[in-house]
Computed example of a mutant assay.
Amino acid sequence: MAGASVKVAVRVRPFNSRETSKESKCIIQMSGNTTTIINPKAPKETKSFNFDYSYWSHTSVSQNYFKKDIKMK
């Protein structure tokens, strides 16, 4: 498949009612097209991934998990 390309998008969705009732914490951060997962048991341990598109739907823009340079459509 010469010349074929795949674009990958990621979205952080809002918590569902079960997650909200358990007072779950968001362990995802986004900055631009980089998504970082934070280990809740060791917050300094993180894994970062790059995607073609990143969408934040979890909380309001004012939350500190959201970085202003995220592509929003």
Rank of each mutant, 00 (worst) to 15 (best):
E19L: 05
Q29D: 12
E45Y: 03
S17E: 10
T36I: 15
T35Q: 12
S62A: 08
C26D: 13
I38E: 00
R13Y: 04
C26A: 11
M30N: 08
M30Y: 02
M1E: 06
K44G: 03
Q63S: 14
K73H: 01
G32A: 10
Q29R: 13
K7D: 02
T20I: 08
R18S: 04
D69V: 02
A9W: 07
S62I: 08
K7S: 06
Q63K: 10
M1R: 07
N50A: 13
I38D: 00
A4R: 08
A2F: 03
I27M: 14
N50Y: 02
T20K: 15
V6A: 03
A9K: 12
A2E: 04
Y55I: 08
N39E: 09
E45K: 03
V6E: 01
K73V: 02
T34N: 03
K47R: 14
K47N: 05
T20D: 13
F51W: 09
K44N: 06
K68P: 00
T20P: 00
T36Q: 06
T36F: 01
F51R: 02
N39K: 10
T34E: 13
S48D: 05
F66L: 10
T59V: 14
K73S: 03
S5E: 09
K41G: 05
E19H: 10
N64L: 08
S5A: 11
P14V: 01
D52A: 08
K22W: 06
Q29A: 14
F15S: 10
S31H: 14
N39S: 10
N64R: 12
H58W: 08
K73M: 03
Y53L: 05
T59Y: 11
N33R: 14
T46C: 11
S5H: 08
S5V: 04
S60H: 15
A2I: 03
K22I: 01
S62L: 12
K41I: 00
Q63V: 06
N33G: 13
K47E: 05
R11N: 04
M1W: 01
T34Q: 10
D69A: 14
G3P: 00
S57N: 04
M30G: 06
V61F: 06
K44P: 01
E45S: 07
S24E: 04
